[in-house]
Simulated scan of single mutants.
Amino acid sequence: MSENASVPSREHAVSFQYTNWRGETSMRTATPMGPFYLGATEWHPAHQWLFDAYDWDKGAQRTFALKDADFTAGAEAV
């Protein structure tokens, strides 16, 4: 995912609980940048469902592993 793409509108942001590759869990707020897709990255080396999103908490675009996101946890956060 390109780090230089434009920042999306926060209007369609979603909040979810996310566990990163280090096992750290936190609430994240992000705006999806496209559909889910099967793939692998440096941080997600196993072939799996991923999604790219603008992470408002980090101020940058990120790729998230769908298996590590709990969207029910953030249902009331946005």
Rank of each mutant, 00 (worst) to 15 (best):
L38I: 14
T31V: 08
Y54L: 06
R28T: 02
P35F: 12
L38V: 14
S9G: 07
T41A: 03
T41S: 07
Q17L: 15
G23E: 01
Q48I: 10
A75K: 11
D68P: 00
M1T: 13
T31M: 05
T41G: 03
E24D: 10
F36A: 12
T31R: 07
A40G: 04
S6F: 10
A5K: 11
T19K: 01
A77C: 13
R62L: 09
D57E: 09
D55H: 02
W43P: 00
P35K: 15
L50C: 00
F51Q: 03
A60Y: 03
T19V: 08
S2N: 12
A46W: 09
M1A: 15
A40R: 10
K58Y: 09
M27G: 06
F16C: 04
D52M: 02
W56D: 00
A73Q: 03
G39N: 06
A60K: 08
D52E: 13
K58I: 07
Q17T: 13
Q48W: 00
F16A: 05
Y54D: 00
F51S: 02
A5M: 10
E11S: 10
D70W: 01
Q17E: 15
D68G: 03
S9V: 06
A60F: 05
P8C: 06
F16R: 03
A13N: 08
P32M: 14
E11P: 00
F36M: 15
T31P: 01
D70L: 06
A60W: 07
L38D: 14
P8K: 00
N4F: 12
F71E: 07
L38F: 14
T29L: 08
H12S: 13
